[in-house]
Design a protein around this nucleic acid. Sequence first.
RNA 1: GCGGGCGUGGCGGAAUUGGUAAACGCGCCAGAUUUAGGAUCUGGUACCUCACGGUUUGGGGGUUCGAGUCCCUCCGCCCGCACCA
Length: 833
Amino acid sequence: MALGKYAPEAIERKWQKIWQDSGCFEVETDPSKPKYYVLEMFPYPSGKIHMGHVRNYSIGDVVARFKAMQGFNVLHPMGWDAFGLPAENAAIKHETHPAKWTYQNIAEMRDQLKRLGYSYDWRREIATCRPEYYKWEQKFFLKFLEKGLAYRKNSPQNWCPTCNTVLANEQVEEGLCWRCDSEVEQKDMEQWFLRITDYADELLDDLGILEGGWPERVLTMQRNWIGKSYGAELTFQVKDMDESITVFTTRPDTLFGSTFMSVAAEHPMVEKLTADADNKDEIDKFIKNIRDMDRIKRGADDLEKEGIFTGRYCVNPVTGKDIPIYIANFVLMGYGTGAVMAVPAHDQRDFEFARKYKLPMQAVINPPALHEKGETLDAADLDAAYTDPGYMIHSGQFDGMENEPAKKAIVEHLDKSGKGVMAVNYRLRDWNVSRQRFWGAPIPVIYCDKCGVVPVPEEDLPVLLPENAQVRPDGKSPLPDMAEFVNCTCPQCGAAARRETDTFDTFFESSWYYMRYCDPRNEEQALGNQPLDYWMNVDQYIGGIEHAILHLLYSRFFTKALRDTGFVRNDEPFANLLTQGMVLKDGGKMSKSKGNVVDPNAMLAKYGADATRLFILFAAPPVKELEWSDQGIDGAFRFLNRLWRLVEDLEPVLTPEVPTTFTDPASDTAKELRFKEHDTIRRATRDIENEFQFNTVIAAIMELVNELYQVKDGLRETEPKALSSAIATALTLLSPVAPHICEELWEAMGHADRLTDQPWPAFDEKALVKDEVTLVVQVNGKVRGKFQAPNNAPKDEAEKIALSLENVAKYTEGKAVRKVIVIPNRLVNIVVG
RNA sequence: GCGGGCGUGGCGGAAUUGGUAAACGCGCCAGAUUUAGGAUCUGGUACCUCACGGUUUGGGGGUUCGAGUCCCUCCGCCCGCACCA
């Protein structure tokens, strides 16, 4: 059969159909086989896939195909993160319905993914907006409720005025909405929360399990986000009032130096403290000023520290002194208790504040240098707070102690009178999962005037989202206005009641989808034990760094919460994580406004799936950013054509060899080709296994093809089997990257079976042993010559040859040879002086 | 400020972990083929130098027979966190 011109579209269609009809990517739970679960972050069905998706999914597909060739039972699923606000906005704009828009996009994007030839088990596809999916998370929620992991509370929340909904802390970036960049406001609201803080310690500790499997920076980001700090909670009595204020401090050792207190403007005690103040108006104005300031300005590092005296004092529990209580703009209600014991001598912020408002300072930690000289630190001499370790001074019975053990000693002392206790504080807050949005999974609770909050009984699930709802032009959720949705009867007393109209944060869906893939069509259970026990954890997860906190933290929490509610048995969802770099164009992110978007469809039409995949995997290692280059993809396409023509040219002499079947070279040329064949397998295997360095895998295959071009005419008549074997190897190694063309050329070699079903080849160490090797000769570390020597030639022999080289003699002449270093099969370094 | 990463040709990027720096590709140059262009094949291409040779992995220093790789220091860029008490 003649190959003719390389026409990617036709052969790609052909093989995609063959793969689909044969079901070769469909996998079953089979405990007799070793499993490998590779997963890429599923997309939001926004319309079309973009180059970032192509990169993400091409990386995953090579991993999946490679592992399958290595004999693993590979689970490689795909689905749709299908709930979310863009569907509502699109529905308003196009006067359609979010569901219709979403399902259309899914159809379009599924078609694109199929045209890229990815090896998904499409039978396992899930869309999170389907009741068959979200009914299970409604069930999870009921269980969480039962276990006390879900609760409702009224508190100030992040409100995005553009999205018309609250946001979790993780979803606010520098005061802006993560999705639309609007400025986030604070709003008191009654909301549903999940107790992720109950898992703060486990989420932190288990990062240790992920060490080595996850990028260090993601682990660091999660550690920072959880923000565990050790310290103490100390209680200060308010003077002349039957009230006390508790502070969190990491420096209880400095308590004797606390000369005033600072509280947040939002602190619940502020109103009481200032009620009788003479300058009440002034104080209120100050508070209002702070509260009205937007989060960015308030969080800015150059914000001038300001405060105002409340008119009240509290009592330092160890010195017994009255210390003034200030309201300060730099104290945050969201961290610790919203109140800080100020120690100006040993905290830089308090130092600046004290200088500004002429508040007293007392040094209580003596620097070791002074301690040794027998002197003590005077706060008046400081031009900045002293924050390093030292020895206790002006601290009563604790004087002379090192400050570190004094922390505990002071708290224990206070504990006797109930005024202090060791405490751990976290930055992490509970996860607000209520969203005032329509296109999401309904939260399954009912509000009854008599019974209060009543969970929807399990047998009434799912609470269906009415898909016929008409979206409102103002962008607000239509659910609260839909009587047929809202009105219901109380499951407890039967009286008329109202349904919750908030829906789940869409991160709820993505927190467990990877588990549902293991058992996607189970109608009896959310997650069947047998498939889950077999497939979980995900062996390799691949996605963008933007979810370093958000999705990856929520998913880790969900795994643990579902474990504790009896749904699953594993502790961590993702054993290994690869965060791929961004795809850039002209040095920047692709965006419609810049007009530098590369459309995958255009690439498919012009070059085909194989060239697109090849380029994107070749241009940079997966973790680095990738600069899109039109010439680059041209080059990838050129290489595939070159491979194609190689097989076309040799077709008459090719036999259906599998890799490495050529074992008995007669000529030096064939011998060298055989060496290259085996060396390419070695390099390709090593580079895939080591950090998925596909770029160098491809480079190695290119070298093999280049060598084939060099030797093909010399071997085609004499040792064509050497060519067939090497070509079989090139095709097999390249097949995970460019599967269609490799299948086609494999077939052209005369193979009756499919390349996709071939094993990953193994190399023979013996084929890598050369009879002769090139040694480099250096004189004083500079290369002065090279020579051929038998493999593993003895050191003294190599030395003798090296010294005898003409060019080497030139540099050693008249000089004493001090030392000769011989590294067998590599180099000889002659040291002269 | 704290934490993490990075710095190699005109460009994207290699370098078996201390042993010939610049593999592979893009771009560029030359030759072959072609009526021509394109495509293809072959060769060349770090820099300086006519050459011999010299220089080069952000700068400087160190360890070593030998450093892109290890150590110190400085500079620059990127990312994350940041009045976190």
